[in-house]
Design a protein around this nucleic acid. Structure first.
Lengths: 213, 213
DNA sequence: CTATTATTGGACCAATCAGTCCAGAGGGAA
DNA sequence: TTCCCTCTGGACTGATTGGTCCAATAATAG
């Protein structure tokens, strides 16, 4: 449940004792970290290569499409991380309110710990690439649907009817991601904490819906 | 109430009949539009200059700090637009629910109209510049506080106690901004429409709070 | 008018960008 | 060994980056 704990950089790639992850995985991790800090366009390939301790040839060997191909792979891997964590959450015994609060506080802790230097990867990629990078935009659309679907399944597993579950999923995602950016701008957890409390209060119980007119 | 209607590019600068706005204003508007489309780092000064039909010398005359100075000015101007619109909304006679719904649907209409090619300016700037552009980050922190304050005043004007008003302000901002990015990724208004409906339902009446333990 | 300041127009620069290319290291399989 | 293929290492390139500099041109003041 690494993503629920707010850690995007752990992941697999470290199967045995102290072996270094393969180059491809190191490139993806370096890309994620740097883009979370400063966005897609501001991060150069040279910097990614340095952070991953990989030569230039390896980047274009593993990702023939270059930087944008690396972005697509990173989006896909992050999607797997997130949906995996949400699946685990769905089958866990924790209450919905506790889960939503934990999602918010985990992100708040991560932001604070990194000195507000890292932000939401899918969000920044969306706002930087949707109009003019069709490959990345397509990957983001798929990722968005997958994550919303995983959130929806979580709400369904907690007893909501599918249509309500999906709307609550959209809400939870929007509020958490938005609060993350606001917290970053203000360098304060206030927004994220309030978001978690609010979601736990209003989305946690099926009978609090009140929108069947 | 241009910002409530989702139009960020209108603004002043056109006082008399058909006079062209002065260079400084044109630079800011060009910057806003381009950054909303593709982010801060991906937009070059040459492109901004071309869009504003201004020579290079003018940029560094009006903004001695260059691109980052232009960003700070754009953030300040957008902040004024937003807080002005919210002040008007606060003194208007419209219901809170109607206002929140309108904010969401105005953004949805704007996104759709531009082919999902423009996004939230403050959000993308936050996630691109906070760790390594101190001037812009400072402007964003001020802007964030000002906008949250304006939202808070709106809730206070509708009868909420100050502390609840501020928390609802954080919530409304986070949810609307987050939903905007999600809508952009999915190229669908679904998320924004749901966000507006949800906020109108849960933040509109003072007695729906239920959080005084 | 002249003097002064504000603004424009654009040539120019060093640094950096993403991407290309290829020689060769490494490691199984035969 | 030899063959084959994956992967690495890094030199190189043309385009573009943000920024500097200054002469030419309004615009305003006296």
């Amino acid at each position: 449940m690494s993503w629920l704990d707010g850690d995007t950089t752990a992941g697999p790639g470290d199967p045995s004792s102290g072996r270094r992850p393969p180059t491809r995985a190191r490139l993806i991790r370096a890309f994620m970290t740097l883009v979370q800090q400063r966005g897609y366009a501001a991060v150069g390939t040279a910097e990614i290569l340095a952070a991953a301790a990989a030569p230039r040839g390896s980047l274009y060997h593993h990702f023939p499409d270059g930087k944008s191909g690396l972005a697509v792979a990173a989006v896909e891997e992050l999607t797997d991380d997130i949906t995996g964590a949400l699946q685990q959450a769905a089958v866990s015994k924790r209450s919905l309110g506790a889960l939503l609060k934990q999602m918010a506080s985990a992100r708040a802790a991560w932001l604070k710990q990194t000195g507000w230097s890292e932000g939401p990867l899918l969000g920044v990629l969306t706002n930087e690439t949707v109009p003019h990078e069709p490959d990345i935009a397509a990957a983001l659309a798929l990722a968005s649907e997958a994550v919303t679907g995983a959130f929806t399944n979580l709400f369904i597993a907690r007893g909501f009817p599918p249509d309500v579950a999906r709307r609550h999923a959209q809400l939870a995602r929007a509020t958490l991601d938005g609060a993350m950016t606001l917290s970053r701008a203000a360098r304060s957890s206030e927004s994220l904490v309030e978001a978690g409390a609010f979601l736990a209060r209003h989305l946690a119980t099926p009978d609090s819906i009140g929108d069947t007119p």
